[in-house]
Design a protein around this nucleic acid. Structure first.
Length: 129
DNA sequence: CGCCTGACGAAAC
DNA sequence: GGTTTCGCCAGGC
């Protein structure tokens, strides 16, 4: 799988066949999958990493399909920029997200990641397309 | 087709 | 300083 920056500086995933896949979503998933266990990042950070920082909404929105994505996407490690688990309601059960994070060693308080800044994983720094 | 809707984020009130 | 508005853009209706 190849990732390239074609026109407009938007990133797109291109299969070996040269066919363009559902760019945005797949790309978001791709980045999300890179998030280390026990770490978290924000929608905006992912968006910025993809070059579409102005549309963080799309990143979160893309997560709608993350459930039936393959391979599995650790969507629970993605929160908004304040560290709030705003997407918990979109999981199988509202508690799922929090439980998954706690399981990985991330502490949650009031639907917010404790020490968010410390656990924050910046795709811009860790990844390079 | 145009209009509405977001798991966001920043800026304007 | 909490609330609303707007930009963003793909998809559903």
């Amino acid at each position: 799988m190849v990732i390239s920056k074609k026109n407009t500086n938007k990133l797109k995933i291109i299969n070996p066949s040269g066919k363009i896949e559902a760019n945005f979503f797949e790309l978001v998933y791709e980045v999300a999958r890179q998030i280390p266990k026990g770490r978290v990042t924000s929608y905006g950070a992912i968006a910025a990493c993809l070059g579409t920082k102005l549309s963080a909404r799309m990143v979160g929105w893309a997560m709608n399909g993350a459930h039936h994505a393959n391979p599995k996407v650790p969507a629970h490690r993605v929160v908004n920029r304040k560290g709030m688990l705003t997407g918990k309601l979109h999981f199988e059960t509202p508690k799922k997200m929090e439980q998954l994070l706690i399981k990985e060693g991330v502490k949650i308080k009031n639907d917010t990641v404790v020490d968010f800044e410390k656990l924050f994983w910046n795709p811009l720094l860790e990844l390079e397309f």
